[in-house]
Amino acid sequence: MTISKGTAVGFCVLGMTLVGSSVAVSQLLLDYPTLTAQAIRYTAAAAMLFLIAHRFPRLGGSTPGVRPTVRELGILLVVAATGMAGFNACIMLALHHDTEPAVVGTIIGAAPLGLALLGPLVGPLVAGGRARPSTRIVAAAAVVVAGTVLVEGTGRATTVGVLGAAGALVGEILFSLLAAIVLPRLGAVRVAAYSCALAVPLLLLGALVAGEPAAWRLPTATETGALAYLAVLMTVVAFVFWFIGLERLGVARAGILVGLMPVATLTTAAVMAMAVPGIGPALGVLTVAAGLAFGLTGKTDKPAAAGAAGQSASGSRGGKDGAAAAGQERSASLTASA
């Protein structure tokens, strides 16, 4: 499936907006067994994604009937373990240890810079050749990160909470980097479907180790609604749109759009609280917008001569990317998200 750069940007924006808006929704699940809730969410999402892949086999750029190889399954397993199960576990660890969502969001907000620096390394794995980070993209990512800090601000944090947020940041970055390797052949829908399915047993195992079975119960009506939102919009819709857009834009360029997550989180929180954001967050939104405009327009640095092929996979056609849930599942972060 060939889409324009503008459409790809729109897909990524929608994906990150959904991920960012899910923070408030995820907080409705703080009283429900954490890992169990995520296992339910990913089970439902995987079922829907496999159904979509069966009914619309070419959706998301995949080839009908394609199956992941053993190597690809290994990569997808790491995506599920780090960018999904691990990401959510780290987020909830931070939130449960007296660390404010703003602090978690600020730390995860560094994901665009990490993707800008590491994204070009994915190109050679997909198409061969060499590539180096674009100065323009790295600078734009730094501006977006600065805007994220203004948007999220600072707040109360503990050592365990900060470590949990840092773990979520690593998971967010790996979510996109690793997904980029398998997206060209498997397509967005299948990558999302297999990742969700592989995350379920990991989460259930984690729930057993954490002693959650003793607290298992049916979710309340509010919790059921939150789980449905996370499964349908935050996972199925956001993941597929994010993967499609990232394959077209490349990890480094699309990665800066992860900076939209805290903006979406701020907007959602303001709407739910019926309160106007302060001057700092408002300036942060403008800063993020400026960074995105700078990074998504104009020419980027040329890769090393031998690396044209690498850039083409990591930039234009698809070094791709992923996931980060948010693959910053990715600020979606703050949630129990992607």
Results as ranks from 00 to 15, higher is better:
Phe50Trp: 13
Phe243Trp: 07
Phe175Val: 04
Ala332Lys: 04
Ala142Trp: 05
Thr135Ile: 11
Ala325Gln: 08
Val285Asn: 01
Arg58Trp: 10
Val145His: 08
Val240Trp: 02
His54Asp: 10
Ala157Asp: 08
Thr235Asn: 09
Leu202Asp: 01
Ala231Thr: 08
Thr43Gln: 12
Gly109Asp: 06
Ser62Asp: 03
Ala165Leu: 10
Phe243Ser: 11
Leu93Pro: 03
Ala228Ser: 07
Gly255Ala: 10
Ser312Phe: 14
Leu296Asp: 02
Thr335Trp: 13
Ala193Ser: 09
Leu292Gln: 03
Ala80Cys: 12
Cys12Thr: 04
Gln311Gly: 06
Val104Cys: 13
Met84Gly: 03
Ala254Trp: 00
Ala270Asp: 08
Ala238Met: 04
His96Pro: 05
Gly318Pro: 05
Phe11Tyr: 07
Ile75Arg: 04
Ala273Asn: 13
Ala275Glu: 15
Pro68Phe: 14
Ala309Gln: 06
Thr63Pro: 08
Ser26Ala: 15
Ala326Gly: 13
Ser316Pro: 14
Thr224Trp: 15
Ile3Lys: 03
Glu329Arg: 07
Leu230Lys: 04
Gly295Thr: 03
Gly147Leu: 03
Glu329Tyr: 08
Leu95Trp: 11
Gly74Trp: 06
Leu113Phe: 06
Ala332Cys: 07
Leu205Arg: 00
Val232Tyr: 11
Val126Asp: 06
Asp321His: 15
Ala157Ser: 12
Leu28Arg: 14
Gly65Gln: 09
Arg185Asp: 01
Thr148Leu: 07
Val19Trp: 00
Leu218Ile: 14
Ala193Phe: 10
Gly20Arg: 00
Val258Thr: 12
Cys12Ala: 10
Thr36Gln: 07
Val122Leu: 09
Leu246Val: 07
Ala323Gly: 14
Thr17Trp: 02
Leu28Tyr: 08
Thr99Asp: 06
Asp321Leu: 15
Ala273Phe: 08
Ser331Trp: 11
Ala264Asn: 02
Leu30Arg: 15
Met274Gly: 13
Asp98Gly: 07
Ala127Met: 12
Leu205His: 00
Val79Pro: 06
Ala270Lys: 06
Ile75Met: 08
Ala141Ser: 13
Ala309Met: 07
Gly10Lys: 01
Ala8Asp: 00
Thr148Lys: 00
Ser333Asn: 10
Gly319Ser: 12
Val143Phe: 00
Gly259Phe: 05
Arg253Asp: 02
Gly278Glu: 07
Gly164Gln: 02
Glu247Met: 09
Ala166Ser: 15
Leu334Cys: 13
Ile256Thr: 01
Ala127Ile: 00
Leu203Arg: 03
Ala188Phe: 05
Val23Gly: 10
Leu163Cys: 10
Ala139Pro: 01
Ile279Asp: 12
His96Asp: 12
Leu260Ala: 01
Leu51Tyr: 13
Leu292Glu: 01
